[in-house]
């Protein structure tokens, strides 16, 4: 059969324009496939690496209620990573290759997880702001064009709201506590506010792939639109806590119907992306160690499975 690439591409775009999902076995442009492998795996890696800064505090949670909540939240993030890796694998990349790309630094993960969690309040700030930012991005992605990715997002979004609520409740408890506790909460907000805004990625002018991503409905909103949405939601939430967002330029703009906010330090963003954040080495080191030290377990489980199969075959033959 003669396949006309232009026809395939225009049929593909027509399906997307009609709001249809693209499924693994459907024809897709190579660039669509590659972009998705990169984006979905980066998203999955963020879930997996994202367990590290929070896992750091599980054993030091102030009480059992907080401990079970945080433990369940971190376990969810492991699940999110697995949903996303599975979605990426439908595009023809293996799980081992995905890990290889993470471990060799070829694949990225969200730069927010390269910041340290210095106090218990940071865990509250992460649930509130980092999961809050992730929710805004992920709600948009439930309508993304690639079916397996969109379905993973639906499942993830159902689980995320507990993450944000447990974080916000921690912040609320600290803010209603002693002056020292409230100061801890303020300090956590001071450190996590700007990195949270950076989570939405570079400004639209500096984001060359946005146009294509919108045309293919990989994204339905631009980085700046999502960032604005986040700021508009977070400001009143900070007010309820009685905390001050560390941005002197932050103010309501009646005309735009949005909050104006100050400039983001993009140098810092790019430094962290390039591997020079405070925890890049530690995070990646922890992942590589877990993978390497788990190798004998993976091999043993596989050998056991093969041995069982061989026994079954032998029994059938006799």
């Amino acid at each position: 059969m003669e396949l006309d690439i232009n026809k395939l591409e225009s049929d593909f775009q027509a399906r997307i324009d009609a709001g249809e999902n693209i499924e693994p076995k459907n024809w897709m442009p190579e660039k669509y496939r590659k972009t998705h492998i990169r984006q979905i795996s980066q998203h999955g890696h963020s879930e997996i690496v994202g367990m590290l800064p929070e896992g750091n505090w599980i054993t030091r949670a102030p009480n059992l209620r907080r401990k079970v909540g945080l433990l369940a939240k971190v376990q969810d993030e492991a699940g999110h990573g697995l949903y996303l890796y599975s979605a990426a694998e439908t595009l023809g990349i293996s799980r081992d290759e995905l890990f290889h790309q993470l471990h060799t630094g070829k694949a990225k993960y969200s730069s927010i997880f390269n910041y340290p969690t210095l106090s218990w309040a940071d865990i509250g700030a992460i649930g509130w702001l980092v999961d809050g930012a992730a929710i805004i991005n992920q709600v948009m992605l439930t309508r993304t064009s690639y079916g397996p990715y969109a379905r993973a997002m639906v499942r993830i979004c159902k689980e995320e709201s507990f993450h944000q609520r447990q974080g916000y409740e921690m912040m609320l408890t600290l803010c209603n506590g002693t002056p020292a506790q409230k100061a801890m909460a303020q300090d956590a907000l001071n450190r996590f506010w700007w990195p949270s805004l950076m989570m939405f990625g570079p400004r639209d002018e500096e984001s060359p792939h946005t146009e294509q991503a919108m045309q293919w409905k990989i994204k339905l909103k631009t980085n700046d639109e999502l960032r604005q949405q986040f700021v508009d939601i977070a400001v009143p939430q900070a007010e309820i806590l009685g905390l001050t967002i560390p941005d002197p330029d932050l103010k309501w703009n009646e005309e735009r119907g949005h909050y104006d906010f100050g400039p983001i330090d993009w140098d810092e963003f790019w430094q962290v992306v390039k591997g020079n954040g405070r925890c890049n080495k530690e995070r990646l080191g922890a992942r590589v160690k877990a993978w390497d030290e788990g190798e004998w377990v993976r091999d043993a489980a596989m050998a056991y499975s093969e041995k069982k199969d061989a026994k079954k075959e032998a029994k059938k033959a006799s």
């Binding site: 699940g79 949903y83 689980e159 489980a301 499975s305 069982k308």
Partner: peptide
């Protein structure tokens, strides 16, 4: 519901429980 990796059927069921039915 989705997919996962496991060495054998028994492990696949255990992992499925943990990954897909936590709630």
């Amino acid at each position: 519901a989705g997919s996962l990796h496991a060495a054998d059927a028994e492990m696949a069921l255990e992992n499925a429980r943990d990954v897909y039915t936590r709630r």
